[in-house]
């Protein structure tokens, strides 16, 4: 026990300096995002997909962006047992941020919307003031934030959403090579 305590104590400062999120926010659960993106759907069913190497290469060729995982997180939206569209939950990792987002795609391959589920800043934006740092920890989408104790809002040089734009192109390519044929 004592040894474990020492290890955790020793590793703490390094963690704080490099991987502690400076800013993080949770906006929506996957289920909430599904309803917002495809409100006409009666139900959503997880749809396991395993992309083969040829499909992975095709996705890269179509979108210009590499698909990292062979198993994207896909839900099929159903109306009266038929496919009404798809929701894909994906992640993008930027220089300073880690973002989870959901994209709704119609059965014929049109984007219905993009919702950010969570946003995590990884480094470069560390908060020095410990009073503020405490606010960022352990927030979940279930917490009802109170005004004045809410996640602080940050004003600075504009962040680019380029990674998400590229990500959505990649998800449309996943739809084209692996989902469009599904009835």
């Amino acid at each position: 026990m004592a040894r474990i305590d020492w290890i955790s104590l020793l590793s703490l400062p390094a963690l704080m300096a490099t991987t502690s999120p400076a800013f993080s926010a949770d906006y929506l659960t996957v289920a909430d995002a599904q309803r917002i993106l495809l409100p006409q759907a009666q139900s959503f069913a997880a749809y396991p997909v395993t992309l083969n190497p040829a499909q992975m290469a095709q996705i890269r060729a179509i979108s210009g962006v590499a698909q990292r995982t062979a198993q994207p997180r896909v839900w099929r939206a159903l109306v009266a047992g038929r496919t009404a569209g798809w929701v894909i939950v994906d992640e993008v990792v930027g220089k300073h941020e880690f973002i989870t987002y959901a994209t709704g795609i119609t059965a014929d391959g049109h984007v219905t919307g993009v919702e950010i589920l969570s946003y995590r800043e990884t480094k470069g934006g560390q908060v020095r003031d410990p009073r503020w740092r405490g606010l960022f920890r352990g927030k979940t989408v279930k917490d009802k934030f109170k005004l004045n104790q809410d996640i602080p809002n940050i004003s600075g040089a504009t962040l680019s959403c380029r990674n998400i734009t590229d990500g959505v192109k990649r998800l449309l390519a996943i739809h084209a090579v692996a989902l469009a044929q599904v009835g």
Binding site: A25, Y27, E115, I116, Y119, T158, S160, C161, R162, T165
Partner: peptide, 9 residues
């Protein structure tokens, strides 16, 4: 709060 990618940000 809700968040969407718009206006390039």
């Amino acid at each position: 709060s809700r968040c969407r990618p718009l206006l390039g940000t």
